[in-house]
Design a protein around this nucleic acid. Sequence first.
DNA 1: CTCTTATGTTGTCACTGTCAATTTACAAGC
DNA 2: GCTTGTAAATTGACAGTGACAACATAAGAG
Lengths: 212, 212
Amino acid sequence: MLSLSIYKQSWRCQYRIMNQDKKSGYHHGSLKESLILHAFNLLDEAGPDAVTIRAVARRAQVSHAAPANHFHDRTALLTELATRLFQMLDADVRRKLSEAESADRARAYMEALLEFGLRHPNRYLLMWRQDLVDWDDDALSACMDALYDSFVNELANLPRQSGRDPHTLAISLWSMIHGYVTLRLNGVFKDRSDEVSGANRAAAMLDLMLAQ
Amino acid sequence: MLSLSIYKQSWRCQYRIMNQDKKSGYHHGSLKESLILHAFNLLDEAGPDAVTIRAVARRAQVSHAAPANHFHDRTALLTELATRLFQMLDADVRRKLSEAESADRARAYMEALLEFGLRHPNRYLLMWRQDLVDWDDDALSACMDALYDSFVNELANLPRQSGRDPHTLAISLWSMIHGYVTLRLNGVFKDRSDEVSGANRAAAMLDLMLAQ
DNA sequence: CTCTTATGTTGTCACTGTCAATTTACAAGC
DNA sequence: GCTTGTAAATTGACAGTGACAACATAAGAG
């Protein structure tokens, strides 16, 4: 019976790997992750509004009510996506920080935020859609808090900015980058004032704020 | 016959005034304006998502398909709202400008934007919802352009900023205020760092940018 | 008075989120 | 091995949405 149990176990494992995305039988095996995967694809392809419960279920080749077992709400699904996106952003920040020289650590934060937004427009838009995402969710707000707190910390350690309130500086910088990305993704700067390279514009903006 | 025409004209006028919001007979009389009025009410009460064609039609006491005669789309209705909101914002800016001293004219712009956003959260959110509003609409983009251009103009005339690129300065300032308002409306700064008064925080942020 | 057009009406379709009732798979206890 | 319970999927339904089509009526022009 032991061997049987082991066999079952390994079969289950193989089943899960093989059916990462396909259903063979009544149960899916790893539906939750599959739903998230397809939700991200839909998000990237067609924006937050396209990420409907039923569309995601269709892509996972599963009935329209199946996702309810894993996500109570549509909001719950989108909040899960947003939480993971904040984690991805955090990873980007850490990568940039590890490469940055000590003087440019604050800049690395801002650049990570900017690049993330410009590289994945729909993902960035979802992260800040208050009406789609539950900001009271513990996991989500924990990710947000961690990101913000480490940024404030970085700014407080900046030698030249010692006289300034780090919160004011943090909120100013964050607001500026976030505002710029948001306006740009919304097409406001489309053809205005040769808005070719967001990175160049943002660099000039950061110069305005940091270098003095 | 001339007198008849005049009589008809005045009767029509009176009819329109009397039935600003009520229908008496088959035709409404001034449905388009009534729809816009109720759409603004819905927007203020419950946000952009609550402004559905059918909900607006119900409030105007009219059938669900009636609005189609005045707005081809839901997008068309929301674009009309956004256009008017940009005009209101423009009026606010002009009012603030007329009160401002010459040194603080750029600041007046930013304060108008900030106050508009914090005073009318749902209106502000709608104005920047790329997925709900048609940014290629001529009337809308004309309003946007006028607002931005006059702001750049104001910054270019600032004596102390003569060495800087006015576009970079304009985009930086606009992005910062827009980002701050957006993040604040989304509840990001809810209890973080004593975010009590948006005006105070914003004043400190503007000091960071302008006063040096 | 008649004809046209603008502005309403009802009805329908496909889609959505959410719920209820049902069916199946899996695991644990005997 | 068999039963039993629970997790995870199914179908079906409901109300709400935007959009369209077919139709009705009112207003105005000739």
